[in-house]
Design a protein around this nucleic acid. Structure first.
Length: 661
RNA sequence: GCGCCCGUAGCUCAGCUGGAUAGAGCGUCCGCCUCCGAAGCGGAAGGUCGCAAGUUCGAAUCUUGCCGGGCGCACCA
């Protein structure tokens, strides 16, 4: 509602400026005043025009206010400060519109967006860093859907890379297992396979450097040979990799499902290799001149491209900064394969995967099946790829390779696609030294003074996602049991689960993307203050009110829409009611901002402010004992609009509010 | 050496396209459950917005330089 009134205001202002000064301003700032007494919108336009018009800002502001006259939906305008124009909404009209529930219309042609997130190497358990990735990605998916896009969610699986190779080396050479033995090993595991591989991966990584120089060289060679066998496929080593990686991928999907995160497709590197996506891309890259064969310098014999963010060199000179795409031995690098994959994402490759159903989600998830790529898949499958816009949720350390893929697309003549290719980058989750010590890791003296220590899968250093979720659930369960002993076992378990998910998701979302999160159990396990449970609690309070009032939020809002409530929205008491409506009204604006900036943290903040302002309202006004019927309806409707806006916004964050907690 | 990011209250972080007395949570201290749920609320203390110039009517926000920290700059993925 706020956004639409803002558009009305902008149009009226534009018309006024045209009439008064014969000015056509396409863009001007519309701010949100710092205090309620300044109204709902602040226009600094007169300050901007002062120089151009050679008039005092206040004078201009007065002329504009006079020129604006009356604008539908607005109560009035006034000049303030050095020359601000403050605009006041007609509160009762705004409340009516909000109570009627008219959806906010945002003009945009819906796009087919493709979001890639999670993408954990299938060789070990997911850790907190992966949780940040998946929660950011999933939230952004919900945000795009809420603003009208059709979104497909992909979780890229690098099942033929070095990390999986390391696990296979561990199985074949450290544990001495053949393909047949691996089945038995799996069957005999005392713990889940992703946990077992967490340790095996760390062991193997250390083994590469634990022997004599000759031994280490041989071990590294073993790793390289294993990698090549995985890439080739159709051999026992590749079969081990396939078996183990697939099991681990299932564990990852289950872990993420605990947080309400689902996927449409798992594109795998093995199919990108075996279906020769690269060959098709290579032809295009050569034809468009993005790649050239280097004939001198350190990259002699390689196919190279100009590295993104570098100048490049003149024809005939040697570009020592260039990015190698095809090695001198003819194999293709990671960025090369990624270019091919991204051509496919935009429907520009001229090839497609085969697809098989892989993972069936429970019926209550609202999401039937996750598919996986295959060389020869089922005849009937959903359409994947061919997106209008793509978003890759990948940590900021990979911004260089991402830029190179984008530049390659641009160089191939796909400028429009390059523009709609977003590296949704975010900073890592590290551990505080205290947290590392608490987990029993050895922390070097030099590291103890640091703000955070980077997690490392190779060292087995980190917090496993499922361990964290388990701890959160145990903590919320203890609280729920104590507070609500009358609830059934099933009910308490479900409530604890919802609160734990709320706490975790909010924790990961309240930081802006480019902030490193120094993880600590104390912060993550907090349920007070700016946390998910605080906001869930606000919703629970509204629900409690409606239970006691024996009314439904929808019915109350419908009734409020028929009343003239202007008298109750003025003055100090009116302000504290209006504050809640105004915040709820801004939801559409916040969603737009989040979309444009690809920053879910703004929505997280919005939810918190909603909860906070509802709590202030709740303290100040006693709803159930209000005697004036119209006023009581307004107070109930205020609780209803808060509940509605909170539930809707929290849902986009992937947070559910329980009935009681 | 080059590129990207960060430096705001004791701690952890917000601060949208430059704008009206720089905010929140945690922590500390003092209060509030015989009135709708205290996972809550009120109050207090706490800041040269790293430093210095510049642009501007106006800078935490933009530009440049410096200081301090992080992360990238493979024929690894």
């Amino acid at each position: 509602m706020y956004l639409q009134a803002q558009q009305t205001l902008a149009a009226a202002l534009q018309a006024t400026l045209r009439t008064l000064y014969n000015l056509d301003l396409a863009q001007f700032a519309i701010e949100q005043p710092p205090e309620m007494r300044f109204g709902e919108y602040a226009l600094p336009v007169a300050l901007k025009l002062a120089k151009e018009l050679r008039k005092a800002p206040r004078k201009i502001a007065e002329e504009i206010v006079a020129g604006l006259g009356t604008v539908p939906g607005f109560a009035g305008f006034e000049v303030a400060g050095a020359g601000y124009i403050n605009a006041r909404l007609d509160r009762s009209a705004a409340v009516r519109i909000l109570a009627e529930g008219t959806p906010e219309l945002i003009e945009r042609t819906p796009q087919h967006a493709l979001v890639e997130h999670t993408s954990i190497n299938p060789n070990k358990a997911a850790h907190v860093g992966h949780l940040r990735n998946a929660i950011l990605g999933d939230t952004f998916v919900r945000l795009l859907r809420a603003t009208g896009d059709q979104v497909s969610v992909q979780n890229y699986i690098d099942n033929t890379g070095v990390q999986v190779a390391d696990i296979v080396v561990g199985l074949e050479h450290l544990l001495g297992l053949s393909l047949g033995d691996v089945e038995q090993w799996i069957a005999g595991l005392a713990e889940r396979i992703d946990f077992a591989c967490w340790d095996l991966y760390a062991r193997t990584s250390q083994w590469y450097t634990a022997g004599s120089p000759e031994e280490n060289a041989a071990r590294k060679q073993l790793r390289l040979d294993t990698l090549h066998r995985l890439e080739q496929g159709n051999n026992p080593t590749a079969a081990i990799a396939e078996r183990v990686a697939t099991l681990i991928v299932r564990r990852h999907l289950e872990t993420m499902l605990r947080l309400g995160i689902t996927y449409d497709l798992l594109p795998r590197e093995s199919e990108i290799l075996h279906l020769h996506f690269w060959d098709a891309a290579f032809v295009q890259l050569k034809e468009t001149g993005v790649l050239r064969l280097e004939t001198a310098g350190k990259n002699t014999g390689c196919w190279i491209m100009r590295r993104a963010n570098t100048e490049g060199v003149a024809e005939g000179e040697t570009d020592e900064e260039a990015k190698v795409i095809v090695r001198s031995n003819g194999t293709v690098t990671y960025v090369g394969k990624d270019i091919a994959y991204h051509l496919w994402k935009f429907g520009l490759l001229g090839k497609d995967f085969g697809y098989n159903p892989f993972f069936r989600y429970p019926s209550d998830s609202g999401h039937p099946t996750c598919w996986i790529t295959a060389e020869h898949g089922e005849a009937e499958h959903p359409h994947f790829g061919g997106a209008d816009a793509i978003y890759n949720v990948i940590d900021s350390r990979q911004s260089d390779p991402q830029s190179n893929v984008i530049e390659a697309l641009r160089g191939m003549g796909f400028a429009a696609q390059a523009e709609r290719y977003t590296h949704f980058s975010y900073e890592m989750v590290a551990l505080t030294p205290r947290c590392a010590l608490e987990l029993g890791y050895e922390v070097a003296e030099a590291d103890r003074a640091r703000a955070y220590i980077e997690v490392s899968g190779r060292k087995g250093f980190g917090v496993k996602a499922d361990d964290l979720i388990d701890r959160l659930v145990a903590a919320t369960r203890a609280e729920v049991d104590e507070r609500n002993p009358e609830l059934s076992e099933v009910n308490r378990a479900q409530t604890a689960q919802q609160i734990a998910v709320g706490a975790l998701r909010y924790f990961m979302l309240k930081f802006t993307r480019n902030t490193v999160i120094a993880f600590d159990f104390k912060d993550a396990l907090s349920f007070e203050g700016e946390t998910g449970p605080y906001q869930q609690y606000a919703v629970v309070r509204t629900r409690s009110i409606f239970r006691k009032a024996n009314a439904s939020p929808a019915a109350v809002l419908a009734e409020a829409a028929t009343l003239d409530l202007a008298a109750h929205l003025d003055g100090e008491a009116g302000d504290s009611i209006w504050q809640v409506w105004l915040r709820a009204a801004k939801t559409g604006l916040v969603l737009e901002q989040c979309r444009d900036t690809a920053e879910p943290a703004h929505l997280a903040r919005h939810c918190f402010l909603l909860a906070q302002e509802f709590s202030a309202f709740y303290r100040k006004h006693h709803i159930l004992t209000e005697e004036d019927p119209a006023r009581k309806t307004l107070l109930l409707a205020t609780a209803a609009i808060a509940e509605q806006a909170l539930v809707r916004s929290l849902a986009i964050l992937g947070i559910e509010a329980p009935a009681v907690m």
